[in-house]
Design a protein around this nucleic acid. Structure first.
Lengths: 249, 249
DNA sequence: CGGCGGCTTGACTAAATTCAAATACCGTGG
DNA sequence: CCACGGTATTTGAATTTAGTCAAGCCGCCG
């Protein structure tokens, strides 16, 4: 049932993600438990569908490397991207709670995932309340992200939506150390942006060009450079402080 | 810090909500713990703001009676309703996880809430893993609801959005036994519907009138009667099975 | 070199917003 | 009982925003 190709497991003890300041420390005992809870480590190619809408009892994943996104579609094919996933994001809590996954997850880049046993999730709740709390925290945090996106899509203009999304992705990526001197490599097409913002591809393009023309950012070959981040924040009415260290499961 | 007027506490053992088939059973021990976790029972008038955006360390609530909604606003006043809250819904998990509440909560009717100690939430995680799991479940479930709304607002036409929202509210209310022979009393204005669907008040009105005219539903004096629920489902492309019993905290 | 996917632009159409005003509803006070 | 004021609903007209259609371009890869 696991979609993806198993590859040798990197050691949890020396997990490079955990070295990032973005994530909070964890007890050795909890880390040992997590490394036993982890049943596989998989690699998937760009475009791979990790979870399909309707999948039953999918596993729980942590995105280890690469980018992905969560989405839903209507039966005629219209697609709404719910949120983007970056390394450290926990995937499938919702899907695990209900009979069938209500959404799908697709990799934006070649990606790797830690795979956790769904069956033994109960052991985690029974024996590691701090980890259980972390799972709730991550779920609430993801909901907060969807809340933000809903605010954008419901009440911001196209230009404001673009500004809010770019700021959000930039700040998240920055927290993970993914921003380089020449900006951030966004592994997404304008179609993804359109589907995340609830606007058409053409309108997305025209809006982005306009924002580039007035000097808010550069965007060439998928590389995003914020030339006027404050103006972008003001336009979006989006002012997020950098997150404190967050749990990593 | 509690907003609202304390009133005498109904007994948790004889909680009328728990008698509803909508909620799953709970052990006597867990129920005893919850009744100790509950520190207050409050009543608030219609329109009361239970949680303000930015509130720090708000408490945790369960909506005991009445309707409410969760929302965010932009600084110029544009408002997006994130989801509606019905009896049994847990409120404030997100707000509890972060420094300041990222959203606000307002009562749509005169309402009553069970108030839980935030401080002692940790005891729950430490001693009642099944309740911890329930809190995660409820959080994931609320996220699923926001996901649905985001799909609507991002990718459905105005008419489809109205159809999806009315179906969703109707089914949720039905699960709680709130639908009567002459339909469901929806304690919301068209402005609320507009703010939930990301469309203007005027357009909401015109869209609803059109759907009434073609016979999909009746809506007089806030009373909703679905005259053609199947057509409404098809229009919305929204087909939710009734939920299995869910946790009540 | 050719083809394909993704980006860009213009012209036209459709959907939704805004503005304005009339009407219905509801509770209060005379 | 009725008049009154405030809120909510309804409708039409003008405007703006976004979507659709169509075509050209650009960069990359085989």
């Amino acid at each position: 049932m696991t979609r993806g190709r198993s590859i040798p497991r990197p050691s949890c003890r020396q997990c490079p993600l955990r070295r990032s300041e973005a994530f909070k420390a964890i007890s050795g005992r909890a880390l040992g438990f997590l490394s036993r809870l982890k049943v596989d480590h998989i690699a998937t190619p760009q475009g791979h569908e990790l979870i399909r809408a309707g999948d039953v009892n999918p596993r729980l994943y942590t995105l280890y490397r690469g980018w992905a996104f969560r989405y839903k579609t209507l039966s005629d094919g219209r697609r709404q991207i719910l949120n983007f996933l970056l390394p450290g994001d926990l995937i499938g809590v919702q899907a695990n709670m209900f009979d069938a996954s209500p959404h799908a997850v697709e990799a934006l880049t070649d990606a790797e995932f830690c795979v956790f046993s769904r069956r033994r999730l109960w052991d985690l709740y029974a024996n590691f309340p701090e980890l259980a709390f972390d799972i709730t925290w991550l779920t609430a945090h993801e909901e907060g992200m969807v809340d933000d996106n809903l605010l954008s899509v419901g009440r911001r203009s196209a230009a404001e939506r673009v500004a809010a999304l770019l700021m959000q992705l930039y700040k998240r990526a920055q927290g993970l150390g993914l921003v380089e001197k020449d900006g951030l490599l966004l592994p997404i097409t304008q179609q993804h942006i359109a589907d995340a913002l609830g606007i058409s591809l053409v309108h997305t393009n025209k809006t982005m060009r306009r924002l580039v023309r007035i000097g808010l950012f550069q965007y060439r070959r998928s590389r995003l450079q914020l030339t006027d981040p404050h103006a972008l924040e003001r336009l979006a009415d989006y002012f997020e402080a950098p997150l404190p260290p967050r749990p990593l499961i």
